[in-house]
């Protein structure tokens, strides 16, 4: 467990910066600092928190904001599935704690280490996960406390801070030229739909579905040829 706690530290520092920035944004959109603490410890999925807070601030559509956030978290279906063999002999309570403590960083690190050393397992996952959730909760809280003391960032383009964060998050997900095409079409279709309908929630949904269809079509074509 200690090994996991130490090995994750460099990644935790990166997450702390990101968490601090998110805390500022959340505080500026009206969340009290303790609400940020609560959200970070209960959700423990950074990108979905950013997306949900941004949607909530700009649309005030509760369900839309939660849906956008959880849609981003659907990747945890695959991540949690991969933990199945690792956790199979553990009691249910341990399993539930372990999936909650598993985020992108400590999951990737545990499996990368395990590929080299099969003795690495649940304690490593839990140790690194504990460090990640603590870092995330503390840094977002610190950001939120700081965020209430700084002037109104909306004047300086708070909305753009979210856009820039989304751009960086998307970049980290880019898998190759197939994505460039499907993302390009998502961008154009969503932009046109927002302009035409004025309904951003609908446009985001329809634009994403269109992009996913393009991606499936491209993958099908490359696998046939």
């Amino acid at each position: 467990m200690k090994d996991g706690m130490l090995s994750i530290l460099p990644l935790a520092i990166g997450a702390a910066l990101y968490g601090f920035a998110f805390g500022i944004l959340a505080a500026q959109t009206g969340f009290p600092w303790w609400a940020v603490t609560l959200m970070s410890s209960l959700v423990h999925a950074g990108s979905s928190q950013i997306v949900a807070v941004e949607r909530f601030a700009s649309d005030e559509l509760l369900i839309g904001a939660a849906l956008a956030g959880v849609a981003l978290n659907l990747r945890y279906l695959g991540i949690a599935a991969s933990l199945g063999p690792l956790l199979k002999d553990r009691p249910l309570f341990h399993k539930l704690i372990a999936v909650h403590l598993t985020g992108d960083e400590n999951w990737a690190l545990t499996f990368a280490k395990r590929a080299k050393d099969p003795s690495i397992g649940v304690p490593f996952l839990l140790g690194s996960g504990l460090v990640m959730i603590s870092t995330w909760t503390l840094s977002t809280t610190a950001g939120a406390v700081f965020g209430t003391t700084v002037p109104d960032l909306a004047r300086f383009g708070l909305g753009f801070a979210f856009t820039a964060a989304f751009i960086a998050m998307a970049r980290a997900l880019w898998r190759g030229h197939m994505d460039t095409l499907s993302w390009g079409s998502t961008f154009i279709v969503t932009l046109l739909l927002v302009k035409l309908t004025g309904n951003s929630a609908f446009s985001i949904l329809a634009g994403s579905v269109f992009g996913i269809s393009v991606s499936l079509f491209l993958q099908k074509r490359t696998s046939v040829s």
Binding site: G78, T163, L173, F187, T190, S208
Partner: peptide
Amino acid sequence: KKALDALPGCLLVALIATSLSAA
């Protein structure tokens, strides 16, 4: 599985497009 893998990227790009629509 392919659709789920493609979803996060497309969703983020749609969010970027929406935030830029009136920028």
